[in-house]
Amino acid sequence: MNKQKCAVIGCGFVGASIAFSLIQEEMFSELVLIDINQTKAEGEAMDLSHGLPFVHPMKIYAGTYADLADCFLIIITAGAGQRPGETRLELVRKNVEIFRDMIPQITAVTQDARLLIVSNPVDVMTYAAWKLSGYPPEHVIGSGTVLDTARLKYLLGAHLGVDSRSVHAFIIGEHGDSELAVWSSANISGVDLDSFCDICGACDGETLHRLYEDVRTSAYKVIEKKGATYYAIALAVTRIARAIVREEHSVLPVSAYVNGHYGVSDVYFGVPSIVGAEGVEKVLDIPLDGSEQQQLEHSVQTLKDVIAGLDL
């Protein structure tokens, strides 16, 4: 297995943006692009390759599933796009059928890769990829609520007038309408959020709820305005890839397999986890207050209800 080899399956807006983001990092020496439209993959590979004199040497090419045999990280973005007004969960049946065809083609050539799922609805699709692949659950990861958490940090930082990198707060649960903000443990560089707000007089419960709603509806607003979201998710996926390839043991709210944590089992959802070379190395049980626990249980049940109808 070549730890410096990565593949992106699906060369639409999201896949191409991820590939563009990845070539600016010195993580990989080889990048394979795969798409049902081979000509599209070839065009993206050519376009990206023409920029290599500005970054670092690597091989970029349009390939086939056979090229995945020694691939360490396989990023899957393939699937139907989310249409204006359509929820992520409404995409599920179309995309599961795509996975039923695609995943066996991956497992036919490799059993050792790390799968990073980006296709929506990402939590259900990550569960489907795990079931269909037979891989260890820690080797099958979804992008989860990494982007949602970044949106929360950005919006809360902008509201408070602080660098978003100083904001420490998580969105967890479904990457979708039932996700929740964990306000009870949120802090600004170690200063409890409530205390920080008391000092600055900058927010109250109503304001925090509005910020959460802005996070939850962000994708819909972007899709309405420009047709798709792809730049921010590309950066989020690159962050996850870096944690895996460089064995960073970073804490990120990826979509991880949860079996016993938070009182729930046999489900994937966005949850703070230690991410490294093995994929999800440990799921973390961060403190939740009573209301947050109830919201998480509702979010998980939403996902399990969908999974139950998929015959996986």
Rank of each mutant, 00 (worst) to 15 (best):
L211V: 14
L284I: 15
L235D: 12
I244D: 09
I188W: 05
A169P: 02
D204P: 02
C197D: 01
I286Y: 11
R242F: 08
V275N: 02
Y212K: 11
G260A: 08
N259P: 01
C200G: 11
W183I: 11
I240E: 10
I274C: 00
I172Y: 02
G270H: 08
V258S: 04
D204L: 01
V264T: 14
G227S: 08
S273H: 11
A219G: 03
R246T: 10
C197K: 04
W183F: 14
L284T: 10
C197M: 12
E206R: 01
V275F: 02
R239I: 06
F269W: 11
G173T: 05
S195N: 09
L288V: 08
D285W: 05
V245P: 03
V254I: 12
H168W: 07
L208W: 03
D204A: 02
G260I: 13
V280S: 08
S185I: 15
I286P: 00
S255N: 10
H261I: 04
E224P: 02
A232G: 08
N259W: 03
V222G: 04
I223P: 04
L235N: 10
K226S: 14
S184I: 02
S185M: 15
D285M: 07
S189L: 09
A202M: 07
G190Y: 03
V245Y: 01
Y231G: 07
C200H: 13
Y230H: 15
E247S: 14
I244V: 15
G173A: 05
S291K: 14
A243E: 07
G260N: 04
L193K: 00
E281P: 00
E224S: 14
L180A: 03
E247Q: 14
S189P: 03
A243D: 06
V191R: 07
I240C: 05
C197L: 10
E278V: 12
D214C: 09
V275D: 05
P253R: 05
I286K: 10
L235Y: 09
Y268P: 06
R242I: 06
V264D: 06
S195L: 13
V191E: 13
G205P: 06
G276C: 10
G173D: 04
A256K: 02
A202Y: 04
S273C: 14
V222S: 01
I240W: 11
E174M: 00
D177S: 13
A243F: 09
V245T: 14
L180Y: 00
D289S: 13
H168A: 01
I223Q: 03
E248T: 11
V182C: 06
D177G: 01
C200S: 11
R242A: 12
S189D: 14
N187Q: 08
E281G: 06
I233S: 06
L180P: 02
V245A: 11
L284H: 12
T217S: 09
A256Q: 01
S273F: 08
V280H: 08
H249S: 15
I240V: 15
E206F: 03
P272H: 12
S184K: 04
S185W: 01
H209D: 00
E281W: 04
E281F: 05
V264I: 15
S184H: 08
T217R: 04
H249P: 01
A202L: 13
I188L: 06
R210K: 07
Y220L: 09
K221E: 11
V237A: 10
V237K: 06
D289F: 10
I171Q: 05
L211P: 03
E213T: 05
C203E: 00
